[in-house]
Design a protein around this nucleic acid. Sequence first.
DNA 1: CTTCCTGGGATAGCGAGACTATCCAAGCAG
DNA 2: CTGCTTGGATAGTCTCGCTATCCCAGGAAG
Lengths: 214, 214
Amino acid sequence: MRLAELSERSGVSTATIKYYLREGLLPPGHRVTATTAEYDAGHLRRLRLVRALIQVGGVPVATAREVLGHVDDESLGRTVRLGAALWALPHAPEPDEDDPAVVAARAEVDRLLESLGWETARELAPLSPVHRSLVVAVATLRRLGYLWDAELMAPYGELMHQVARRQLDFMETHASPTEQVELAVASAVLFEPVLRALHRLAQEEESARRYGIE
Amino acid sequence: MRLAELSERSGVSTATIKYYLREGLLPPGHRVTATTAEYDAGHLRRLRLVRALIQVGGVPVATAREVLGHVDDESLGRTVRLGAALWALPHAPEPDEDDPAVVAARAEVDRLLESLGWETARELAPLSPVHRSLVVAVATLRRLGYLWDAELMAPYGELMHQVARRQLDFMETHASPTEQVELAVASAVLFEPVLRALHRLAQEEESARRYGIE
DNA sequence: CTTCCTGGGATAGCGAGACTATCCAAGCAG
DNA sequence: CTGCTTGGATAGTCTCGCTATCCCAGGAAG
């Protein structure tokens, strides 16, 4: 198919597709003549993933390019590829280590990882942007006066661990090897809105059960 | 304290504080003379909440104003105030009901709510932006070929329900009446980054346990 | 062969959002 | 009175994600 048809089938304007091609989010089509290029089902699939990352995941274009670069790097193993995708996602800015809230948050997160027995997370802590994001988020809550500590967070950690185990079980049983990497990205980025929506719905439901709709 | 001190203590530039005052995110200070106004600890606290909403929660300024409007409306009950805050948050665009992925997603979400017994969520489904967000997210995953159905989502729903119950328990035992509304907003917006970070850390940990670091 | 039309590439512009820099007038301090 | 600070208003800046325009090289119709 040519650019016009790719646009038609994906619902993305030709101008935007050209933009993604320029930005390297989409590999160029096969050149047929000097003025025409041919696109295939792989381009369509990639284009849908790009749109999902940007629109549903809210991932900036530059970040999406980085994430997709890791997806395409077949020299990496599963964990690394998943990790690379996760690490490339937008992360919190460097925390100010002089801020007492940050110091306290870091201490609580460390205690949390210890109590959960997450050894890998502890080892990678100094490097991992995910770890840093957690510290920043906890520090923000503490600065507002909500003193989240390891004991409070541990049950949530256990619950999220259950979620992660389920996702990897699903991935192992349902995805072919070629699909696994893309599924890793989908899990990391696209499943989060589902989880967030479920969380908010559960909050509404539980609040209504306890206090009524008033 | 005056504007300069408020800026100093919050780490937010005076220009930005003036911007928030203009936008109605921060109530004006008490006018002392024609040229000076006095700010108090309440302003500092509100300013920190605003920054947290915008920077940590990624909430647009216009939306933050709306959310804070509900926080300040003392005529509302707990559930409504929590709901108002949740509903004001940025939500997915209207789904295209002609898209088969959207139709299928909506059917699966309805089945999910039925199997979970979330009656309130079912009643409010046609109105709730949260419900719509869930449909859009599931539809996006389906369009990419990941056929999430009610059976797959139910365990996540149960887990998120456990999270929500914990949060409301915490809110009931730890927050004074005046703090509860702000805590509702904090739960809705600021706790989500914590949950997301825990989720990603759990993914890394579980992936490393299963496949090693390679 | 020529003319018109289409597909594709490059460039510049647009609109929203979140600040940010500048200017200004009113005090109050010395 | 002079100069410095405070607060208010206005316009500018910067980034991001597109989007509209221009241009040229074919290929097809006459």
